[in-house]
């Protein structure tokens, strides 16, 4: 871990060294310039690569974890918090199965490092219902049969909830375009669009 500061003194010592250092190949003007740049600022404290404390605020509850910086939000949710409603489809941002809300905005949890969303409000599919009362979007997916195998459904629903908040769902074409970040390999699209439009108050 690089904690602490490059002090002016250490820099001056280094700056005085080039003639000696040149013999061992570390006295290039470039390295001196680097040392100079580093001299005026504190060195950033870094964590990892081992487990580090990470606090995640999921569905209104704070969870204290010890995880490596390389753990994605998706893996933290599924593997550490047992919130398996958020699905892993591609793990590379190409399907939308992992869609969750971070501070109200939809994102792909598979490309989000958990350590980077501390202090943010994370909403997953488990956080949508109010007790036994389904969120209107969940109810609409049931009513319109907006799925077949159901694997893409949590991501579709989170994406649709965000879409309504974004006020973009004005007609069928806009719903299709703004839901395009969620792929359904079963091809349940017509019913998904109908569900979203029904919550948006549009006749289908």
């Amino acid at each position: 871990m690089d904690v602490g500061k490059v002090t002016r003194r250490r820099f001056l010592v280094r700056a005085a060294l080039p003639t000696i250092a040149a013999g061992v190949g570390i006295g290039s003007p470039r390295l001196c310039a680097l040392a100079q740049a580093a001299a005026s600022v504190s060195v950033l404290p870094a964590s990892g690569p081992g487990p580090m404390p990470v606090t995640l605020n999921v569905n209104g509850r704070a969870h204290e974890l010890r995880i490596e910086p390389r753990v994605t939000l998706l893996d933290a949710l599924r593997e550490r918090l047992a919130l398996t409603g958020t699905k892993k489809g591609c793990d590379q941002g190409t399907c939308g199965a992992c869609t969750v809300l971070v501070d109200g905005r939809r994102v792909n949890a598979c490309l989000t490092l958990a350590v980077m969303v501390q202090r943010k409000a994370i909403t997953t599919i488990e956080g949508l219902a109010d007790g036994d009362q389904l969120h209107p979007m969940q109810a609409a997916f049931l009513a319109h049969d907006g799925f077949q195998c159901g694997y893409c459904t949590p991501g579709q629903i989170l994406s649709a909830v965000a879409l309504l908040a974004e006020k973009r769902a004005t007609d069928e074409a806009s719903v299709r375009e703004w839901m395009s970040g969620n792929i359904c390999r079963c091809g349940a699209y017509p019913n998904i669009v109908a569900a979203v439009r029904s919550v948006a108050g549009q006749p289908s």
Binding site: A38, S40, V41, L44
Partner: peptide
């Protein structure tokens, strides 16, 4: 994914110094 260290920068100078050092 390879293991790596993580640091959050508060100002541009320290972010740039961290890259300059590595």
């Amino acid at each position: 994914m390879n293991a790596f260290r993580y640091a959050q920068a508060r100002d541009a100078a320290s972010a740039m110094a961290a890259l300059a050092a590595d």
